[in-house]
Design a protein around this nucleic acid. Structure first.
Lengths: 189, 189
DNA sequence: ATTGTCGTTTGACAATTGTCAATTGACAAG
DNA sequence: CTTGTCAATTGACAATTGTCAAACGACAAT
C-alpha cells in the first residue's frame, strides 16, 4: 500500500489527506493463476495496482494459440487503458500468470478521485505515456535483435522474472518458438 | 488547419471560440527532407501537427546505423511525448523523410491552452494512449510475423506510404535487411 | 507405485533471413 | 554526354530459426 503511494509520487505531488483518500478507495483483490483480470471484448471498468504476482497482456489467434504482448508484475498498474478511458471493449486479455494480489480502483472511484484531486489525471497521463512508450520501445528493439540478444536482454532487464513465468509465455513474448528458447538457454549456461 | 480541429474533435469536445484560440496559437513551419524536428539528447519543447510529408522516429547505434521505430505522416502529431511533458532530454530523433510542413505549438502556448480550455489535457492524454498503444501493438505483432507478412501488412495498413519512403528506412522499421525487403517485393509483384 | 498431464528438451531436417560483395539503375552535378 | 553518388537489386553462401515428432521430467491424482 505504501508502495502504491510511493509509485504515484514519482509522477506527481500528493499531500497526506489526498494519499489517505486514495488509499480509502482501493480494494484488495486476489486473482488466481490462470484467471483473467480483464478480457477481450469486455469493457474494463477497473484499474489494478499489482502488489503480488505476475500478469501478462495477451491475445489469441483463431487456432487458440496465445501470444504475450508484455508482462506486468509488482508495483505497476494493469488495465486496458483505452477501454478504461473510453468505455469501449478491451482488445486483449490480462491473465494472471501466477497467483496475484492487486489493489483495485473502480472506474467510478477513479473518476471521483480525478474530480477531487487536482493533478490526479496528470499523474495517470504521465504513467500511461511513460509506460506505453517503454513497452513500445522494448518490442521495437526486439524487432532488430536476434533471439539470443532478446533473451539476454530480458534476463538483465527483468531479473528473476524468467523464473516466475512458463517458457511458453516467455517465448511468445520474445517472438520465438519454445524450442528455440530452450536451445538458447542451453547455450547460455 | 481544419484537419487539425477535426482530429482534435475525435478525442474530445471543443466549442468555436476554443477552436479559434487553438488555431491562433499554431505556427506553420517547414522542415526539409533530412532535417530533424527534434533530436536525441535535447529537450523537445514543441509539438507539431503534420500537414504535409512524412517523418520517422529513429535512433542510431554506435556505428551510426539508423533504425526506424515508426513513421508519422499527415494529420498526426509528432513530439517526444515524455520529453515534452517532463522537459527531460529526448531519447530519439524525429527526422523528416520528405519535405514536410507542420503546425507547431510551443510548450508555452500548449500549457496556456491547457489552463484555458478545460478538456485540453484530456484530449492529449487520449491521443497519447491511443497512439502509443497502437504503435506498441504494431511492433508486438511484427515480432511474431515473418518478413513477408510484415511487409504485406504494412502495405495494407498504410496505403501509399511505402512509395514515399526509402526502402532502407522501411526495412529497418520492419526489422529486416534491405536485401530481404528487396527480395520480398520481387515475389509479391 | 502407476498413470496421466503438461511443460520442456532434443533431434533431424527444412525454411527463412542474414551477410557480403558485385551489379544495376536513377539522378544530379559538372 | 560523362561522372559520381547513393539506393536498390542480385547472387552465392552461411547462420539462424522454425517445424514436427519423439522423449523426458516434474508433479498431481488415483
Amino acid at each position: 500500500m505504501e508502495d502504491l503511494i510511493k509509485y504515484l509520487l514519482k509522477f506527481g505531488q500528493l499531500n497526506e489527506s489526498q494519499c489517505a483518500l486514495i488509499q480509502s478507495k482501493t480494494q484488495l483483490k486476489k486473482v488466481k493463476k490462470g484467471e483473467y483480470f480483464s478480457e477481450a471484448g469486455k469493457v474494463s471498468r477497473k484499474i489494478g495496482y499489482v502488489t503480488k504476482g505476475v500478469f501478462r497482456i495477451c491475445y489469441y489467434n483463431k487456432t487458440g494459440e496465445s501470444f504475450t504482448r508484455y508482462f506486468v508484475y509488482e508495483n505497476r498498474f494493469i488495465t486496458d487503458i483505452n477501454s478504461f478511458i473510453d468505455e469501449v471493449p478491451s482488445a486483449e486479455y490480462i491473465e494472471a500468470v501466477t497467483d496475484c494480489e492487486i489493489l483495485v480502483f473502480s472506474k467510478k472511484d477513479f473518476s471521483e478521485l480525478a474530480m477531487t484531486i487536482p493533478g490526479w489525471s496528470d499523474i495517470f497521463s504521465k504513467i500511461t505515456s511513460y509506460v506505453l512508450e517503454n513497452k513500445m520501445r522494448a518490442s521495437s528493439n526486439m524487432l532488430v535483435q536476434d533471439a539470443q540478444t532478446r533473451y539476454s536482454h530480458f534476463l538483465a532487464h527483468y531479473p528473476g522474472l524468467a523464473n516466475r513465468i512458463p517458457q511458453l509465455m516467455l517465448a511468445s513474448y520474445l517472438g520465438i518458438t519454445p524450442s528455440s528458447l530452450s536451445r538458447i538457454r542451453k547455450t547460455l549456461i
